[in-house]
Design a protein around this nucleic acid. Structure first.
Lengths: 240, 240
DNA sequence: GTCTATAAGCAGATAGAC
DNA sequence: GTCTATCTGCTTATAGAC
């Protein structure tokens, strides 16, 4: 998923011949360890990308391993060779999505200036909604369904992150750099608004037209969201 | 769903005797038309309520008519007697949810004062998220999945509503009653933030605790969301 | 209007040849 | 590492007795 995504694994099927001639006879069945690892990595990441799309479209229960395998151009049995159960595959997708969320979350601490920190975080979240809307949809689906498979991530990783950011926002409020906002409400508004551009893509397309989701339209929306969030939080830069 | 919701249909099973004695013999199989209509209304609304919960939890593809019927305490065949297909049942649920959205949307026009109009609309949407989170989740699931079953509602009903509201917001901007906001971005932010309290209930519960979703906690969040949206839009009341 | 039984097909997962 | 065939159980929907 991270280093590969849209290429089909068809290439693998015609590239099994090893580099060394003496292994050519049984090469199709016993690829060198190096190549085996490469095939595994390629198929796994491709299956993960296809799974992300299917889970986004149909949710965990609605997704079928047959459809995921079909989109990946592989027999269903191969999917079960790489991922023993549908749930294991789903977990990998969720974990992958979380890692990117985590990277975007770092931008919150990029500055001591709330205008820079909050503005930068909103831009990072909007960029993520643009670049990987399917991942956001899988996350949303999981939460809507009750988040049964994400309690660990929420409690052990997201909650601690949120609590330190709550403290930071409270300090900014005390320093007069923010309006007296409730920190959690502010964070929820940021998440809700930025993820709306990924999760509700279909609604935005129907209501605002394709242009709104073009590169230029999205960039304009991003800056407008940044302005509105900054006004909502009453952020101002500290005096140098 | 509208006039009935949480009562089980068990009452029906023991109340089939008609009021008139002369019909007592075959009453169980041939209830009077009046009673038949009442039974139909009761079972339909109860099935709709259970369907809303299951579609919210598992999406359209993931939901099964067997589970919906089981929750309603009815044999699966009865569900198909009232709703010929799973899709027909789903449409009824979506339409029902839309009708309540529509009612909340009216509050936007309750005043010519943007502070009152926007604040009232946000409060109405928050109240809807609180009162009927499952409906909001079904809507969200449908949009995330591509909104294939909601193009009509979106294009013929939501879009026209939005366009008149965009005009209204633009007028307020011209009159200096709002900051120079992009109207659609403002509406998306309102929808995203208020619906977040329904759709992402499980995440809020995990991150902010049960107290945040108590009656008092929700009321406090509502007023904080109203304040933040009003600041984001730069709304001020017209001079009398 | 209710409900048992069943049809016809799809689900997740596995066996075992290659 | 690949893939066909298959097991078991669940899916939507219907038939037909009551």
């Amino acid at each position: 998923m991270r280093d590969d995504d849209t290429t089909t694994p068809a290439a693998n099927l015609t590239m099994r011949a090893p580099r060394a001639g003496r292994e050519a006879a049984d090469a199709a069945h016993k690829p060198a360890p190096r190549r085996k690892a490469a095939i595994r990595a390629s198929n796994e990441s491709h299956l993960l990308a296809c799974a992300e799309a299917v889970f986004a479209e149909r949710g965990f229960e609605g997704a079928s391993t047959a459809l995921i395998a079909e989109r990946a151009g592989l027999p269903k049995a191969n999917l079960h060779y790489y991922f023993p159960t549908k749930l294991a595959l789903y977990w990998r997708v969720l974990d992958d999505v979380f890692e990117e969320w985590n990277a975007a979350a770092d931008t919150f601490d990029a500055s001591d200036d709330p205008v820079q920190a909050i503005g930068g975080y909103v831009r990072a979240k909007m960029a993520l909604s643009r670049r990987r809307p399917l991942g956001s949809k899988v996350w949303a689906n999981e939460i809507i369904s009750g988040a049964a498979h994400m309690q660990d991530i929420l409690l052990e990783r997201v909650k601690p992150w949120m609590e330190t950011r709550v403290t930071l926002i409270e300090r900014w409020v005390e320093e007069g750099l923010l309006a007296p906002v409730d920190p959690k409400t502010l964070l929820f508004m940021i998440w809700a608004t930025t993820q709306h551009y990924a999760d509700f893509e279909a609604q935005i397309r129907a209501l605002a037209g394709k242009r709104a989701l073009s590169a230029a339209g999205f960039e304009a929306s991003t800056e407008e969201v940044v302005r509105m969030i900054l006004r909502a939080s009453g952020a101002r830069s500290p005096q140098a």
